[in-house]
């Protein structure tokens, strides 16, 4: 089974792991490892946003005709998270441990409340709305995220 409601939450957990790895390196003031870990987290999160914005959301919007509601807000939150990722990169480059910790905390809460809405509401709605196409789309999402993963 490769439904979006199964693949995307798994990838959320993967991003969580990468978030923790970067934060731990910063806490140890191991800036070299932190920069590498942050880049991996950054790449995966961006890949996740691109998969949703490029594949999932358009499919959901055309299947339901809802383009101004949930997906608009999800895109807006992606933008908020992209900005925080930039701020994290700046703090990491400046070896600013406090700044990083504050921005990381903000990103974590924003990201998790965003994930809750997607996992509990949007993804199951997508699976239902897309019907038979859901598995095909899930496979595409899987490919896209796995390629980035490699």
């Amino acid at each position: 089974m490769t439904l979006p409601a199964q693949i995307l939450p798994e990838h959320h957990r993967h991003c969580d792991e990468l978030f923790v790895a970067a934060e731990e390196s910063v806490r140890r003031s191991d800036w070299k490892a932190a920069a590498a870990a942050l880049t991996r987290f950054h790449d995966q999160l961006k890949a996740h946003f691109e998969a949703e914005e490029g594949l999932l959301f358009p499919a959901f919007e055309s299947a339901t005709g809802m383009s101004g509601g949930p997906t608009r807000m999800m895109r807006y939150e992606h933008e908020q998270m992209r900005n925080l990722l930039e701020q994290l990169a700046v703090a990491c480059a400046a070896h600013d441990g406090n700044g990083y910790a504050g921005d990381a905390e903000t990103l974590l809460i924003l990201m998790q409340q965003h994930n809750m809405k997607e996992e509990n509401i949007l993804y199951p709605m997508c699976d239902r709305a897309l019907g038979a196409d859901a598995e095909r789309l899930g496979a595409k999402l899987n490919d896209m995220l796995e390629k980035r993963h490699a």
């Binding site: 908020q80 900005n83 701020q87 406090n98 700044g99 910790a101 504050g102 905390e105 903000t106 809460i109």
Partner: peptide, 15 residues
């Protein structure tokens, strides 16, 4: 964040 947008990023949570 909503009021200021990216032009005026708010203090982070720890501040």
């Amino acid at each position: 964040q909503r009021q200021g947008g990216s032009a005026m990023p708010p203090p982070n949570m720890k501040q």
